[in-house]
Design a protein around this nucleic acid. Structure first.
Lengths: 327, 327
DNA sequence: GGGACCAATTGACTTTTGTCAATGGTAATA
DNA sequence: TATTACCATTGACAAAAGTCAATTGGTCCC
């Protein structure tokens, strides 16, 4: 990571204040600047990730349903957000938690695969800045045209920026007009390399998409409403990294899927830690499919969704809400 | 990690305050408690490691000498503390920095080997609390009798406590009266197991000791002044995990070393990341020996010591102090 | 050299946070 | 049941941090 020399003072102020525990006026005195400047520098240090303030996400793992989901579906770790009015902004709660969880999971030197969508973008947006080293963020799928706000490359780049990582974009569209073109493009060295690099990721972050008529794939123009209907009759229930899956979580053999430039499902599954984040209640069906397809190992969901998942696992008893007090 | 239910409120307050950015009075309102309580809870959250505030240690790596030391001695990473009067407490600076560096290095699931001594204890003492998971802290060497303040097991346990890790102590003395007894004891299953477990550590933390007459090994009674003198004439220059090394960093074949219960040097060297921390100026000679013995991969030192090391590497130019501005 | 522009810095003020003695509640004990 | 001891909690005050308009200092261009 490159440092401008101006950062030196900022860094020094942060060190004295946060690590040594001096007061702002003491720091000001030592560095021969005004206290107001110290306050300014400290803010910058926080914003630049020179100082990291993180809250443990244990709270959300101690939720009773989190444990039961882990057991029911053989997941590694599950985080469940609280229901209720305590939360300042219920909409932001999932991305906020997911961002914290994700930051906890990213280690120096990691290669991180990132998918796209509303949820992923919201996570990128709330995520704190951090000064990781040697982190690479790669796109899991091809790109979309510009008149859309949650472009895959934007997700990748924003996350890379916040982690001080370098971002690798796919230089290809997500969806092509013909299968032949897609096949040809996948064999282009630049694209091939990017596709091959996915399996060597240490960590992945994604959400699952629905196949509703107001869903992502429609809004971004990847799929027309007619195609969508056809795909649904063929058994499609959700979208992973731009590709349609059926109720069993398997790749759907349809024209659309064959025209896609995106991560191979086996490549995704070979990434050791895969974080799935789901905000919307409507994603139950796709999420169940994603579980069957073993697409993820870590999960962040609302307590409502957690409840429904447990219903479907047939494993839900009637004890509701509230965290499990453990010894 | 076990949670008392009282922690729930503390945790929730910390989440709302630090992650959501609410003010204390807003948090108080949401949780139906007084603002004063919120302030109290937040303090507890920080002290318990539920909230982590860490400052990047990049500042100390950008020191020009840090880079040159890495190059001159083939080290992984070197941190150099600033000289000068800016620092609130020059004595505390090394342990403070070392504690930050060490915390940055410990990852969930790690097995960490810890040696003993004044320096290690000081590090344990300044180190912030953190809520790591599945971390194990193991002692690198046997123990000393009680009337001594920096006992190896105390170092281990204190560090374990701060990391929410579990600490494994050596159930053996560091030094025995006869070689025969030491050999016998090393073959005891409990001890054997502990010794074998050292090579499987992911990270080690230690300092190097001197062989001066006011040094550690003397004060703690491990060695008499007569023995010490004998050892010095045999070529001993320093102490690593209780064992004497010569100027080349090799195990010294002497009676004392044969009576020791401690980590095998090859086992130590097989730990991938080994953090050496040196405070005292007098440790130049032992430190040079430790370098030759390839005992560590990461180093925290004062700029003064850094300068002397570079002198000995014959690689030092006359540009002094001040950090290197990079691009 | 003068002036225009921009960013960094600061003093003065406001808001937020930290602290602590006083209060109230609870569990153990006589 | 009364008594004691012990925390957790709080209100009120003091201390510290945040903010912003005004000022300074620098750089670039004419």
């Amino acid at each position: 990571m490159a440092y401008r020399s101006a950062d030196q003072v900022v860094h020094k102020a942060a060190w004295l204040y946060y690590t040594h525990g001096l007061r702002q006026d003491e720091v000001a005195q030592r560095l021969n600047i005004s206290r107001a400047s110290v306050a300014l520098y400290l803010r910058r240090a926080r914003e630049a990730g020179i100082v990291n303030i993180s809250t443990s996400t244990h709270l959300f793992r101690s939720h009773m349903m989190a444990r039961r989901l882990e057991e029911a579906f053989g997941l590694d770790t599950v985080w469940v957000t609280e229901r209720g009015e305590l939360v300042p902004d219920p909409v932001a709660e999932i991305p906020t938690l997911a961002a914290s969880v994700f930051l906890e999971m990213v280690k120096n030197g990691d290669r991180v695969g990132v998918a796209w969508g509303h949820t992923v973008y919201a996570i990128a947006d709330t995520m704190a800045y951090a000064d990781r080293e040697n982190v690479t963020v790669v796109e899991l799928c091809g790109n979309l045209g510009s008149p859309y706000s949650y472009r895959p490359d934007q997700c990748t780049m924003e996350i890379a920026r916040r982690l001080n990582a370098n971002g690798l974009n796919f230089y290809a569209p997500l969806v092509l007009s013909t299968e032949a073109l897609a096949i040809g493009l996948r064999d282009e060295p630049v694209i091939r390399e990017q596709l091959n690099g996915i399996a060597s990721c240490d960590l992945a972050l994604f959400s699952v998409g629905t196949l509703a008529e107001d869903s992502h794939v429609i809004k971004c123009g990847a799929l027309s409403v007619e195609e969508l209907r056809a795909i649904k009759t063929m058994g499609g229930v959700g979208v992973i990294a731009g590709q349609v899956i059926d109720a069993e979580g398997a790749w759907l053999d349809c024209d659309y899927n064959r025209r896609i430039i995106s991560a191979d499902f086996d490549a995704i599954r070979s990434i050791p830690r895969r974080l799935m984040v789901v905000q919307e209640d409507e994603k139950l069906e796709p999420l169940l499919a994603a579980i069957k397809g073993r697409f993820f190992t870590h999960l962040v969901v609302t307590s409502r969704m957690a409840g429904r998942l447990l219903d479907h696992a047939g494993a839900r008893e009637d004890i509701e809400a509230s965290a499990a007090p453990i010894s």
